[in-house]
Each structure stands twice: as structure tokens, then as C-alpha cells.
Nucleic acid binder design. Structure first.
Lengths: 237, 237
DNA sequence: GCAAAAGTGTTAGAAGTACACCCATGA
DNA sequence: TCATGGGTGTACTTCTAACACTTTTGC
């Protein structure tokens, strides 16, 4: 009866960061427990789950570890569990070393989490600590395991979700933002282009966006009005 | 370093069956490996994953086992993995017995799959084999583990998906169907009500629905036209 | 004044909403 | 001819797409 699988379970986080221009993903170098470089290729931030935590908590722990952030609610978008996930022997070796295990790991099922983040000054500085760095999603190298596929799925999920609920995109902007900035975020994340006038019409109808009196300063063209995001009562989900 | 969890991984299937009137879920009685009744309460059809299969394949195997169907592509909608999933001792005991394990199971992470099915004559007869039966989702009893929560999540996911892609609902109807039947399915599954006239307008615009010459026969009111579903090239996903 | 980017007016058509009405059939 | 459910006409409103135009600012 022991053809039943008793694999390890991990979470992997596709942290999508917007830097004002484009979408980036946080990737880390695959290094051993004590820092030595093993495979030298990039992977997603992730971790095996601990005894006392549920999946969401494990994802939060990973987020905290790599970015310092907490209380960000992430979207659990898909599980990946094929027996061939560890087919690359280097990946498998890395796992055993990194987690100081005394046996080979046959299989890992991983749960994918993702969220959209704003890359601010603090976030930029993180690069280094865990050898983590932001890379534009358009320039991502091949990642370890099936992490490239995981990124693709995360993007699909995030785009679908943000299309239904634009408010998710407000986490990508500073507190005060201009209409052009918001439009740019929508265009980049959703992969669409928007007519300027029609966008303003929609903007005026968004109850959760309030125009401020304040305007840009010191630009060599007409100053743009600032807006801010107002949280509403009935957030769905 | 062994606070890392090495749980079992299962798939659980929320099979939603439409019987012409309402939505039902397939539930099975929790019984031991050799048939004796253990807890007497219902659970979702599911299984631990095997060594040589990936998650999708495990879900297909469960579907086949309980309904005889194959080649139905199911939606993987969420993973459930809290350490408290087995907090009910009866559930835990059942697992060990059913799978003939020689040790206690601390934890199971389960991957939820769901799909919409039509309950036809063949499907009705299944009730018995694995003590499986269709129950209206509005009348489901408390299920084992966290299976009640899993059903709720499945419904949410299916409704969201079917709202975006109505063609998923065609699997719930016979080859030939009337406009009223399709409307009813949409109302029941999506939990909405539709204006008759406006529904006909939309129907006329659906390229994948073709009206037939044939009409109902022997009804004591105006006979309804039949329609059929035509598969198109670019199915998304 | 000029370049640069912000922001506006107006239109035509498509799509969604509402509701009153007519049609075919068996009993 | 009546009850029953199938199916239609039409008016109104709201979104969508398109595109030419005006405004403000620093140099």
C-alpha cells in the first residue's frame, strides 16, 4: 500500500513588484544553507511548510523573510505537484543541502502564492540580504524547478483578478498619484492600452478614488492633479 | 531541522451535478477499506496521490473511480493545508484504516478540484457502488474534515469561471435543449435571474449556439424550439 | 512663442434593462 | 376558450470607442 506519496509541501511566492515603469518579479539565487553558491541559478522565494503553520501563514513567513512586509494578503493561485518537478538533479541536491536533510527528497508539492507590491526605496535596498533581487518579468532568465511556469500562471491569475477588481492595483502606487500614473499601471499590469479621455471618464466614476486639490510641482508642462485612494466598506473578498 | 512538514497530499473532488432542476454534489460515505461503516458521515470523493501521478491525474483517477467518466477537464481551484484539518479524531482514525497505514497521520494537504457534470440516467445508477450519492447542495449535511468549506470554495470558483465563460454550462444540458432549459441552468448555477426577452437576445448572439428546426412535441402549450451547442475553434484554456 | 504633457467635448454605436405584449398548443 | 408556457417589440439607459480639441507649465 506504500505507493502512496508522502511528499514535502512548500509554498512559492511570485512577488510582483511595480517600480513605476514595469513589472518585476523577486528572484533569489539558489545558495546553500551557509551561503555558498550551489547552482548559481535563480529561483522563486519559497519554503517548506512548518509543523505549526497553515499554507497562508507559510506564505506570509516567506514574504516577511524576503521583503520585511507583513499583513499583505496574497492570492493562492495554484498547486504544482508533478512527480517530475525535481527532475533536474542539481535542484534536488540543493534542497537536501539547504534544508540539512539526511535523505534524498523524491517529491515536493508546492502551493503558489502571488501578490502585487510597490517597489519603493525600502524595497530596493533589500537586494543583497538573501541575494534577492527584482528582475523585469520580460527579462527573467530560466528559473530552477518549474518556477518559470509558476510565474506564468501567477501572471495569468493576477491579471484576471485585477481585471475584475481594479482596486488591487492601488497597492502599486504612492499615496498620492496622478491620473497618468494610474493609467500607466493599468496598462502595464493588464497589458492593455487606454484612451486618455475615456480613462478620465471612468476615473471620475470610481467612488474609491478621490481627487485632491494638490497638484504636481516644478514640471515643465501643465501640472497634473493628484488623487488618492479611499478604502470603502464592502470590499469583496 | 525536522519541524519541517512532510505531510500526505490528497486531491478532493467537488463534483457538481445538475439534474435538470438543481445543483447536487457527489458525496460518499466514510467507510473502511473493507466496507464497514466507520464514522457514518459523508465526505467528498478523494484520494491520496500515488507515486507516479501528478495532481491532475490523481483527480482524474478519483473522477473515474466514482463516476466512470474520463477526459473531463476539472478545475483545480484551491489547496487546503491547515494543521488542524484532521482535528476530528474520527477522521484521523478513518484515514489510517482506509489506507491500511501502520502509523498515525499528522497532516494532509489536499488539493481541491471541481467540475460541472450532467446527471443523466447512467450517473443516477452510480449511487451504490462506492456508497456515493448526489445530494442537493442546499441540503448537504456537515461533511468530514473541512469538506464543507471546500464545497463552498468550489462553488465560488465555478460561479466565477462560468460567469466569464458560459460555455462551461453546456455540459449540463442534453445535446438538444430549449432556451428555457439553458436559461434555467444559468439561473441555478450562477444564482441570478434573467429577463426572458433579454435572454433571447443574448442567445441569438451566441455564435456557439445554433437553433434547430426541431421543436418540442406533445406539450400542452406552444412548443419550444431546440438548440444545440457547437464547439468552436478557439476555446480559451 | 514653443514643446510637452495634462486634460476636455462630443459623437455614434453597442450592449444592457425594463416591461408590455402576442403566439401556439392541449384540454 | 382558457390556461400555460414560449417567444417578441420597443423604448430607454448605460457602456464603449474614437478622435479632435483646449489648457497649463518651464524654458
Amino acid at each position: 500500500m506504500e505507493s502512496l506519496v508522502n511528499p514535502y509541501v512548500s509554498v512559492d511566492c511570485v512577488l510582483l513588484g511595480f517600480d513605476g515603469e514595469q513589472l518585476n518579479a523577486l528572484v533569489v539565487r539558489q545558495s546553500g544553507n551557509n551561503g555558498e553558491d550551489v547552482a548559481g541559478i535563480y529561483k522563486l522565494p519559497g519554503s517548506l511548510i512548518n509543523l505549526d503553520e497553515n499554507l497562508d501563514e507559510a506564505a506570509q513567513r516567506v514574504l516577511k523573510q524576503f521583503t520585511g512586509l507583513s499583513q499583505v494578503n496574497m492570492l493562492q493561485f495554484k498547486a504544482f505537484g508533478g512527480p517530475d518537478r525535481l527532475k533536474n538533479p542539481e535542484d534536488s541536491v540543493w534542497l537536501v543541502r539547504f534544508y540539512n536533510l539526511n535523505h534524498h527528497i523524491d517529491r515536493i508539492v508546492t502551493i503558489g502564492y502571488t501578490t502585487l507590491l510597490r517597489i519603493d526605496r525600502k524595497m530596493r535596498k533589500l537586494e543583497g540580504g538573501y541575494e534577492a533581487q527584482w528582475m523585469p518579468i520580460s527579462e527573467l532568465p530560466r528559473l530552477a524547478f518549474d518556477h518559470s511556469a509558476i510565474v506564468d500562471e501567477a501572471l495569468k491569475a493576477v491579471r484576471a483578478k485585477a481585471t475584475l477588481d481594479v482596486t488591487l492595483l492601488f497597492d502599486l502606487l504612492p499615496n498620492k498619484f496622478t491620473a497618468a500614473q494610474l493609467r500607466n499601471v493599468m496598462e502595464v499590469v493588464l497589458g492593455i492600452t487606454l484612451d486618455v479621455k475615456n480613462f478620465h471618464k471612468k476615473l471620475a466614476q470610481m467612488p474609491y478614488v478621490v481627487p485632491l486639490e494638490e497638484k504636481e510641482d516644478g514640471v515643465n508642462h501643465r501640472a497634473a492633479r493628484y488623487y488618492k485612494f479611499k478604502k470603502l466598506k464592502n470590499k469583496h473578498i
